[in-house]
Simulated scan of single mutants.
Amino acid sequence: MKIIAVEGPSYAGKSTAIEHLRSIGIERQAFVSDCYVRQIAHRDDIPPARTESAAAQLAAFEKFMAIENTRVRAALASAKPGAVLDRSVDTLLAHAHALDALYGYDVHDQLRDRLQELPFLRPDHTLYLDVPAEALNLRRKLARHTATESDYFLLDPAFLTHARNYFVSRARPPVSREVIVGRPTPTRPTSRTQSNPSSRSWRGDWPLPTALFAWRHTPPPLLIGGAEVTQQLLAEEFAAAGWRTVYLGSHQAPWDQATQLPQIRAFLDSHHTPYEETRGDLRYQWKKVDCIAVPQHRTASTLHSLLSGLQPDVVFTSQEGAADLAAQARPTALVAGILHSVSARSSCCRSHHSARASRPAESSRLVI
């Protein structure tokens, strides 16, 4: 029997994936099993995720292995050539590994030894759904589960890190013969006729779409004028709401090519913000916004790479040279132009809105 397991943190989409497989008739060919917790009839009988002692952790393992024994018998009785599992015994070992790291229970090796004495389904292949913590928490909030259980241990950052390391970093060798780390990507429109934002749905890694800011001024957090303030605040709001937010800018002024790298480095250093600098590109994260500062001559090529790699759902652009950036992004994403001011230098306005005005606009406006 070929056994495939789906693993990942809570709210990663494991059960959703299993239900989808059921909807397309997978059970005609394979035995399909829900996760351990779903097979416990009464909620009060579910062992706590944060056990109070090593003894309690060992007892929880025995309870779940009794369910595993039922799984084994049901799989054999089905006489089907394959099995698909929502979680496997690797879940139990990853959980023990995390609690050993957090509380020093030191039970992981005991559970591995005990596992060899019990019947269990060993996966041939395990797909680990590697979903960012921000997305997990947002999915839980959207499911309205935060009101009933505000302190949810399974999404505790430290627990998530240690449990993930079991599968991704192989902190301990998984039982599964193979572990594939999957980072699902959102569904994208396949043609311009499908690009109406009101009809889109997003699935997979990010429950909300990806926003890309691209212009020829500096990215956050270096502020020069009102345009920089407006776009930084907008980007930070997207990131705070759970969107994947990337901000492409240039560390050279678009009007005279003067470099602003020293000022950006000094600002980041003074705020203890790490950054990477390679071939004139500066990359860092500011308030959950991934920022990239490149030379002016590499703005277009970097945007091309980001459009291909990120597949953003919306691109924001403005100021000098925005018309060219908008034209570059428009075939693959919704493009929004932010009109900060109108001037002879504003090519975005001249090229796309035929605006003729000499005085600055009183406020920023969004033009799509």
Rank of each mutant, 00 (worst) to 15 (best):
74 A>G: 07
58 L>G: 00
107 V>K: 04
81 P>S: 10
167 F>N: 05
309 G>A: 10
289 V>R: 00
63 K>S: 14
343 S>A: 11
253 A>L: 11
322 A>K: 06
356 R>N: 08
327 A>F: 06
151 D>V: 14
104 G>N: 08
337 G>K: 07
145 H>L: 15
292 I>C: 06
37 V>N: 05
252 Q>L: 00
191 S>M: 08
1 M>N: 09
61 F>R: 00
25 G>V: 10
14 K>V: 06
190 T>P: 12
71 R>W: 07
246 V>M: 03
194 Q>A: 15
10 S>Q: 12
127 L>S: 01
213 F>G: 02
105 Y>F: 11
305 S>K: 14
154 L>P: 00
188 R>W: 14
292 I>D: 05
215 W>G: 05
223 L>E: 02
253 A>I: 09
77 A>W: 02
252 Q>C: 05
102 L>Y: 00
228 E>G: 11
311 Q>D: 10
301 S>W: 01
298 R>Y: 05
179 V>P: 03
80 K>W: 03
89 V>D: 02
23 S>I: 02
170 R>C: 07
8 G>K: 05
281 D>W: 11
285 Q>R: 12
11 Y>N: 13
172 R>K: 13
157 P>C: 02
160 L>I: 05
251 H>V: 07
27 E>R: 06
12 A>F: 00
149 E>F: 09
192 R>Q: 15
49 A>Y: 10
119 P>A: 05
45 D>R: 11
